[in-house]
Design a protein around this nucleic acid. Sequence first.
DNA 1: CGCTTTTCTTGATTCAGATCAATGATGCAC
DNA 2: GTGCATCATTGATCTGAATCAAGAAAAGCG
Lengths: 233, 233
Amino acid sequence: MKDCSQCVVRNRAICAGLLPDELSALGQLGRKQMVGRGQTVVWEGEESLIVANVIAGVLKVSMSMADGREQIVGVVFPSDFIGRPFGKDSPYSVTALTDAELCVFTRSAFDGFSREHPELEHKLLRRTLEELDRAREWMLLLGKKSAGERIATLLLEMSTRLGEQGCHADINSLNQFDLPLDRQQIGDLLGLTIETVSRQLTKLKSQGLIALPDRKHVIIHDRSRLTQLAMAA
Amino acid sequence: MKDCSQCVVRNRAICAGLLPDELSALGQLGRKQMVGRGQTVVWEGEESLIVANVIAGVLKVSMSMADGREQIVGVVFPSDFIGRPFGKDSPYSVTALTDAELCVFTRSAFDGFSREHPELEHKLLRRTLEELDRAREWMLLLGKKSAGERIATLLLEMSTRLGEQGCHADINSLNQFDLPLDRQQIGDLLGLTIETVSRQLTKLKSQGLIALPDRKHVIIHDRSRLTQLAMAA
DNA sequence: CGCTTTTCTTGATTCAGATCAATGATGCAC
DNA sequence: GTGCATCATTGATCTGAATCAAGAAAAGCG
């Protein structure tokens, strides 16, 4: 890695807060890697060889069953951390949903560095706790919410998570974004079929809560009603 | 706390690995607390005031919606850690499923101690990563598995997690245990209704895979078939 | 630019599990 | 023990989402 101090996610990734010399030591261990849409960087059930920070792009974390049923168990954005440190095998796959740029470490090198730098481990702990909160929130969605509630929740979640990325000046950007997922992937994330996803989106559109100028683009017209929908029966 | 070195979960809880003087310093911050079945020790949405190690008993971690729908998002056993460190509010409730014994810390005292003891934070990180793996495994269950697969998965999961508790000498104990959950709670954990849970258990019983001598007690007769059921269509 | 391929939408039908409705156990208090 | 409350089972019916089945709209490509 050339120069971490210039990294675009410098202040948000887990490396934030490291001292300059620590940062450059970590930089020695990492390398930048571009990955194309659809490319898998971590395989479920395989030895966990690498971990990484996401610099740009969006990736999915997924688990699947022997017969091919797949569940997306996480969506990862720039400045997020991917991979499974401190464990022999990775219980899930990580696949790029868009072209992406990663800052990759071998797991063993990262594990070692991490143990010697409590500040880094602390950041990683906080991030893992947040990820656990999000996973549990999603368990509530998968276990108890209706199809309509799931779609509304997804749109709001995507809006906020994508919004955290850009500059905060533009309030409109919150209500207007590109979904990094196609319909099948939305289904795999929400525990629904592609047909149900399509029907629910059409319904929201016809009710005027959202607009869908094209496949990926979403415009939220009535955020408060969408929020109500996401939570109530 | 009197003497952590005598604690029954001494070698399995996150405090394992602390030096004697660190352990006694941590002991100064904690106090033992007995909680009765049904008692809630952490409230969803409230300020996160305490964290704790479980010494004895089983507790549930749950989230609920405005209209009362509830999802159990975690089940916690002796030596496990509960509460949400490093965060203002707790996103979930923690409630005792059986009478339980906890080693309780104020969150602020624990947060401070934790930051000064990297070994403790490291243990907490590993535990949180494991909990995240379990949560994601459960997302696969909630998003993609049929009622029959869910029940089979639950029985096997309970068998192993309860098995980790006792001595490992007795192999039979793995195939014979008391469920700490009633039917309603099983439903809230699996995203099913109480009736569906009952029907699926009856089905497994009539197929001879399990026996149910009373409400809580489960005997697994055919673990391999149950395992197949848990994973296949 | 057509032509193919992929992705999405829409409609008809089916089905797993929810809901509604009793009935049967179990446990606990007195 | 008797009575009462809680919890679990079983059956009948309903329904939301899955499945099956075409088309329509985009996207990719020679």
